[in-house]
Design a protein around this nucleic acid. Structure first.
Length: 801
RNA sequence: GCGGAUAUGGUGGAAUUGGCAGACACGAUAGACUUAGGAUCUAUUGCGUGAGCGUGCAGGUUCAAGUCCUGUUAUCCGCACCA
């Protein structure tokens, strides 16, 4: 057999699949449906990354297996193409983002096709296509209509030199990532989506989906539901109430001070009666230099300033307590004010130690002279709560008292914040709202969608951090859809997350121009049966898209309340140096180079063989050679072909076990061990010196999802049929077990011998057989047998003294 | 600081979930075939000359521990000091 020419074989089968629409999903087919979803790529100018290949190869294998099992499979791909890098390229090169995006999509498409992924190419979506973003805007308007959109002021990181608002990531250390000038914190009015309204639904929805446990946990922590109490503290000097939130109302008797966020409005309200307002202003200014990111990130000593002229009063004890401002309290969570219980909270403890504030123990069990005690115990120094030993009872009791006094009540808080939903950028979906001096915010009428991005040549941001759109008079100036008067268009665009929040719905019916997708298509395909992607998207993207989906469910647009039935995640591919691949480190591997040098099948097999699919693993070209050898040996096996329509007796067990292992491992995403099992089988066939047609056909079939090109070619050579149009191979559980097996015999837990016994041997027979063994006899000679253990098919252990 | 993970030969990683640690690969060594080999094939390959010892470290439970428990260290990822 001549050497395998991967380049021509791969091109040949890729053309065959394309010509025959081999992977086209058919809406409405009577076959059982299977919807496999992978995270669509952002088409960056650098092209694809081997990480993309690993990310898609998992469900690629599952999808190909499902088709062989007779399913109607939807395995789509598309492009999440709005985003900053494209806009920056446009600013740098003067090429329009539309053009940049189109070029990149062409590049990505060609790369993906060269790997032989079985995507349904007739359903490609592009979030920047006006037929797509029309519906993104439509969903936004529906949310607006339903009260889920609002505007509010917030602090943003602003680079005065670049004139842009920056993410925390791009402003670390208080310096702009691009120009390194100092970042300032600036108040800005921004758009929000009221995702917090769905917090509880997003949380309880997790009960009915099959996500990996750590994925569920991360989402739960992100939503961060806590139950506690709101308590109103009076202010001695005036009739103000300072409202706090606490998860530990049971420690109310241990409160020795209060802390409010530096931005808390009470300071402005009473600035005239505060004695040290200059010191407070100075501290506040200091805090304003830091982003919220830094305030929370840095491990540092507590800082703060006591407020002179405002004194709190504990509503339950009547005791007067000092109030401080400190940056460890955030305006964005709870009420921006806390009651501090240094004896039982580590942060409060650190603060109290630094400022010499009293520490009162109210729960026994720790040593509060050394550290805060956060565990459970008997309540002390707490009047009516004294003697209670159970946190839950104490909380219930104190809540009753608070409610009687009318100064507090039970409350629920979520860590999750509302979603800041706008960017001052060009390359995004225009927000379809008009600002009318008479009517206020007016939605663009549905029939006017899509609200198109106007053509622009200059993508530099407008003055003062405005979107480039603000400079386009013809776009900004418009008439109010409601009153017909002069009005101005909103010039901000949506964040990149918008388009990816519903793309899985569009795949069901990508060309529909009267709805985001037809009811029939949605009913047929949804929910997504299996969604795989990166760990970095399990909070933000997944929560955002679940939110949109739940909203669409509530207004009757979709038929399932959860979009994804199952979610898994793959691990990163690290560079050969074990570091995360990045352009700056120069350790990025281009899949095109690999395909050219080794072939697509080798690349596909290697990214799945390199380690546990869910773990990160470093790239190694040496290791990849092993996969190349494996496939070459699969090819060369054609020289060893003999006749035979059934597995030969000496190979039956091996064949059935391998088929079972591959069948099961694919479902569990244990691709590495599935491939190892096929390698083992191949070695056994070479040991046997030959392979018959039945054995070869079975091996090619189970290998097909991993290495489709080479298996199609060999199968077609041997049988004149197209393998991807055949059926998956079954296995017989009973034939997986050989009649005799080798087991280990331990004496006192140490392996002393190996014996062969019938696989169905009972304990007595197995132990008797073990005792026949010379080494075992030797080892127990003259000793008392204390215990004999036989674990079926595994081990004999004899305990002897 | 909080949350989540991880730790096994020279390397990537297996281990039926408490039952023979190191499957399968890579690399290395020796040999074969070759004008040649970064091709292919064959053999060996956890450490130790040995009894033995070995899954980050220290204990514990068990007939039996990589796996369970207690403590501890290091590394990675995420984060919003979340009251």
């Amino acid at each position: 057999m001549e050497r395998y020419d991967f380049a021509s074989v791969e091109a040949k089968w890729q053309k065959y699949w394309e010509d025959h629409d081999s992977f086209k999903a058919e809406t409405g087919s009577p076959k059982k449906k299977f919807y496999a979803l992978v995270e669509f790529p952002y088409p960056s100018g650098f092209g694809m990354h081997v990480g993309h290949i690993k990310a898609y190869s998992g469900l690629e294998v599952v999808s190909r297996k499902r088709r062989l099992e007779g399913y109607n499979v939807l395995f789509p791909i598309g492009f999440d193409a709005y985003g900053l890098p494209t806009e920056n390229t446009a600013i740098k090169t003067g090429v329009h983002p539309r053009k940049v995006t189109d070029n990149n999509i062409v590049k990505f498409t060609s790369q993906l096709k060269k790997v032989g992924f079985s995507f349904d190419w007739s359903r490609v979506v592009d979030t920047t296509d006006e037929n797509y973003y029309k519906w993104t805007q439509w969903i936004f308007l529906k949310m607006f209509e339903n009260g889920l959109v609002f505007r509010d002021k917030t602090m943003v990181n602003y680079c005065p030199s670049c004139k842009v608002v920056l993410s925390n990531e791009d402003s670390q250390g208080g310096k702009c990532d691009v120009c390194h000038s100092d970042i300032v914190q600036k108040t800005k009015e921004v758009w929000y989506l009221r995702i917090t309204e769905y917090a509880d639904k997003l949380l309880t929805g997790l009960d009915n989906v099959d996500y990996l446990p750590n994925i569920k946990l991360q989402q739960e922590n992100w939503i961060g539901k806590s139950t506690g109490a709101f308590v109103n503290f009076s202010i001695k000097e005036n009739d103000e109430k300072l409202r706090i939130y606490t998860t530990r109302p049971d420690t109310l008797y241990g409160v020795t001070f209060m802390v409010i966020a530096p931005e808390h409005p009470i300071i402005e309200k009473y600035r005239d009666s505060i004695g040290n307002i200059d010191a407070l202003d100075a501290y506040k200014a200091e805090c304003a230099k830091k982003s919220e990111f830094e305030r929370t990130q840095l491990v540092k000593e507590k800082t703060g300033v006591k407020i002179e002229g405002l004194t709190g009063i504990n509503p339950i004890t009547g005791k007067e307590i000092p109030i401080y401002i400190s940056d460890y309290v955030m305006m964005g969570y709870g009420t921006g004010a806390i009651m501090a219980v240094p004896a039982h909270d580590t942060r409060d403890y650190d603060f109290a130690k630094k400022f010499g504030i009293d520490i009162i123990e109210v729960i026994k069990g720790g040593d509060i002279s050394k550290e805060a005690y956060t565990g459970d115990g008997e309540m002390v120094n707490s009047d009516v709560l004294n003697g209670i030993t159970n946190k839950k009872d104490a909380i219930e009791k104190v809540l009753t008292v608070l409610e009687e006094k009318g100064c507090g009540e039970k409350g629920v808080q979520y860590k999750m914040k509302d979603w800041a939903f706008n960017r001052q950028r060009y390359w995004g979906e225009p927000i379809p709202i008009v600002h009318c001096p008479e009517c206020g915010m007016v939605p663009v009428p549905y029939e006017e969608l899509p609200l198109r991005l106007p053509p622009v040549d200059n993508f530099e941001p407008g003055s003062d951090g405005e979107s480039p759109l603000a400079k386009i008079e013809s776009f900004v100036n418009c008439t109010c859809p409601k009153c017909g008067g002069k009005a101005r268009r909103e010039t901000d665009t949506m964040p990149q997350w918008a388009g990816s929040s519903w793309y899985f719905l569009r795949y069901c019916d990508p060309a529909n121009d009267s709805a985001l997708a037809s009811k029939e298509a949605l009913e047929y395909w949804m929910p997504v049966d299996w969604y795989n992607g990166g760990m970095e998207h399990v909070t933000r993207h997944m929560i955002y898209s679940r939110f949109w989906h739940k909203f669409l469910y509530d207004i009757g647009e979709v038929n399932t309340d959860e979009p994804y039935a199952k979610r898994t995640a793959q691990g990163l591919i690290l560079g050969p140096d074990g570091e995360k691949m990045s352009k700056s480190k120069g350790n990025v591997v281009d899949p095109n180079d690999v395909v050219a040098a080794f072939g697509a099948d080798v690349l596909r097999v290697y990214v799945l063989f390199m380690g546990d699919y869910e773990q990160a693993a470093p790239w190694s070209e040496d290791s990849m050679k092993g996969c190349k050898r494996f496939l070459d040996r699969i090819w060369q096996l054609q020289d060893k072909l003999v006749d035979g329509d059934e597995f030969r007796p000496e190979l039956i067990g091996e064949m059935h076990r391998t088929i079972r292992k591959v069948t099961q491992d694919i479902e569990a995403m244990k691709f590495n061990t599935a491939i190892a099992a096929m390698m083992t089988l191949l070695n056994k066939l070479y040991d046997a010196g030959s392979v018959n047609k039945a054995e070869y056909a079975a091996l090619l079939t189970i290998l097909n999802p991993f290495a489709p090109h080479i298996t199609e070619e060999i199968y077609f050579n041997l049988f004149g049929k197209v393998l991807s149009e055949q059926e998956w191979v079954g296995y017989d559980e009973a034939l997986c077990v050989d009649s005799t097996i080798e087991i280990a015999v331990q004496i006192n837990g140490k392996v002393k011998a190996k014996i062969n016994i019938p696989s169905d041997a009972e304990a007595d027979a197995a132990i008797a057989a073990a005792k026949e063994n010379a080494d075992v006899k030797n080892a127990i000679e003259g000793k008392n047998i204390v215990k004999e253990i036989y674990v079926k098919g595994r081990i004999v252990n004899i305990v002897a003294k």
